[in-house]
């Protein structure tokens, strides 16, 4: 379970996350939505203890991330897929991650097989497509068999086969009783994957509800329409609008 309480983050006077509170329950896929610049990635970095909040708390199973022992066995996160050393092989990238948390090398081989990267395990990510890097990021998230998964834009750069693979994967992970938070700006994808939605705009909570109720409450026939109606006031840049 992820509990975010009154979370606020200011960077040099600019508010990125503003008194945000929500809870991500286990056993279902929770979609994390918001326009670009809404604070999704900042919120995720705060949950993972990478950035320090100005005020408020973010707890994983009741404890701040920094206090977790062997955190990879509790939380798996996919951040930017580009954030790997271009000349370190997929196997060695996962191996050093495994070593940090005392995980066996056999786990590295398992997640490589699970993400379809076994054949390119010895290759450097320099030669990988964005989709393969995403798979490597997912492999890293699954490494410690964690009960909480946080995936930031996991379908970015994936081909249709990869999109379906991610969709089935996150649904399966949730069905296994894990807590799954998936951020995305792809509404159609979220409508197919997420049962529950947390929607933010300009760092504030706009909605925390089931996907069905969200669409109904914002009088849209699709998630996209409902989303546009709700976030229309909080987007930073709009096409065709002079600033």
């Amino acid at each position: 379970m992820i509990e975010v309480h009154e979370l606020t983050k200011r960077y040099r006077g600019k508010v990125a996350v503003d008194g945000l509170s929500f809870t991500v329950e286990p056993g279902r896929v929770t979609g994390f939505l918001g326009p670009n610049g809404a604070g999704k990635s900042t919120t995720i970095r705060l949950i993972l203890g990478l950035d320090r909040p100005t005020s408020g708390t973010a707890l994983i199973d009741g404890r701040p991330y920094a206090e977790l022992e062997r955190p990879l066995t509790r939380v798996g996160a996919l951040l930017e897929a580009e954030a790997v050393h271009p000349s370190r092989s997929a196997f060695n990238h996962l191996l050093w991650l495994a070593k940090t948390n005392g995980l066996p090398t056999s786990r590295v081989r398992e997640v490589l097989a699970e993400t379809g990267l076994a054949d390119v395990a010895g290759k450097a990510p320099r030669a990988f497509s964005l989709g393969m890097r995403q798979r490597l990021g997912v492999a890293a998230a699954l490494l410690g068999d964690p009960g909480v998964l946080i995936l930031d834009e996991p379908v970015n750069g994936l081909d249709p086969e990869g999109v379906i693979w991610i969709r089935n994967l996150v649904k399966r992970l949730a069905a296994e009783g894990r807590t799954v938070l998936v951020s995305s700006h792809l509404m159609a994808e979220m409508a197919l994957t997420a049962e529950h939605l947390v929607v933010i705009g300009r760092g504030r909570l706009l909605a925390d509800t089931s996907t069905e109720e969200f669409i109904a409450a914002n009088s849209g026939s699709t998630l996209e329409e409902a989303f546009m109606r709700l976030t229309g006031a909080s987007v930073e840049f709009q096409a065709g609008e002079g600033r």
Binding site: L48, G49, L50, Y65, A66, L68, L79, E80, A83, T100
Partner: peptide, 18 residues
């Protein structure tokens, strides 16, 4: 330096928060 330029530092800190 490559740890910072590649962004690997975030994966490192997520794995070793201390």
């Amino acid at each position: 330096g490559s740890e910072f330029s590649t962004g690997t530092i975030r994966a490192s800190l997520a794995a070793v928060p201390s």
